[in-house]
Computed example of a mutant assay.
Amino acid sequence: MPGLTDLIEHLGTPAFPATLFRSTFDWAKASHLTAFAFEPRQKPRLIFAENTGTAPIARGVADQYCRDYWRHDLANRVPLDTGTADRSESWILHTQASEIVHSDYRRACYASVCLDHRVSLIDMKGNHTLRINIYRSKGDAFSDDDVQRIADRAGLLLALTRRHADYGLADRQNSFTRYRDRLAGVAPGLTRREREVCAAIILGLTSEGIALELGVGLNTVLTYKKRAYARLGISSQNELMRLVLN
């Protein structure tokens, strides 16, 4: 696969998703590329979301998918909660928007961003499932040769993404704890939830992403953020980062 050396070098770093997307675009011609981690009876965790163009459209759509629509995904035809500790299998699923029955899901995650075709790579190990989605726009369907080309590289794509997710999750958990504890020292007046929200903001999570991480509503996150900024006398993420990192 082209760019494999760069991909390995960037595993676990913020540069990996964009590097993987560039590499994938060279041979899959994807408009969007997303990856999620699934566990039984839990909302999926977004690993990355990349798209063509300069605006980060895919991230917003992926956050909305995790929050509102993941249960309606056709890839869930194989139940996520029936695995056993020693179960291990992978498969590929080719779908298009017209197959989606749930109209709000189809509109929010496909029609609103002009997507129509998707190839999903799914890897289940026990109760842990990794899913990579490769999207194309309407009028640009995947041919049988395209799907075979993706299938030929599926094992490598899944292995790289799983390792990246493992590295990134461990690093993020360590950083989250460090920033939260730092906030307790520099801003003891913040509540526990306010510290958690601020730590997540420093890590670059969107408000939607923070809501998913903490298991609370979006409006709750916005309230905690507003209160924390007021207590700290700041008005921006940059000011928050300077306060904590300095």
Rank of each mutant, 00 (worst) to 15 (best):
D171E: 09
A228F: 04
A184F: 09
G189L: 04
G60T: 09
V61N: 01
R136D: 03
L157K: 04
T129N: 06
Y105V: 05
D181P: 13
H72Y: 08
K43C: 12
A108S: 02
C198R: 10
E239S: 12
D146I: 07
A111D: 08
L130G: 06
P2G: 10
L203C: 09
T13A: 04
V101F: 08
C66H: 02
V216H: 08
T52K: 02
H164P: 00
I134W: 13
Y179W: 14
F48A: 06
N238W: 15
W27C: 03
A184Q: 13
L74M: 01
A159Q: 07
L169W: 11
L169R: 05
R162F: 06
R71W: 05
P2L: 15
A165L: 01
F142G: 06
L169N: 07
A85P: 04
E196N: 09
E39K: 03
L20R: 01
L93E: 10
K225Q: 14
I122T: 09
I47A: 03
A211S: 12
R178H: 13
S235L: 15
S98M: 01
A154S: 00
L190I: 07
I150S: 03
G233I: 07
Q96L: 07
I201M: 09
S236M: 11
H10E: 10
L205W: 13
A211W: 09
L4V: 01
V216E: 14
F21D: 10
A165V: 02
L212G: 14
A58L: 00
G217R: 15
A200E: 13
S143R: 03
D181N: 10
S120C: 00
Q64V: 15
R67Y: 12
D26T: 14
R163V: 05
Y229M: 09
F38E: 02
T54R: 14
R180Q: 10
C198T: 05
L130P: 04
N51S: 02
S31L: 09
R153F: 12
L20I: 08
Y69V: 00
S143P: 01
M241S: 14
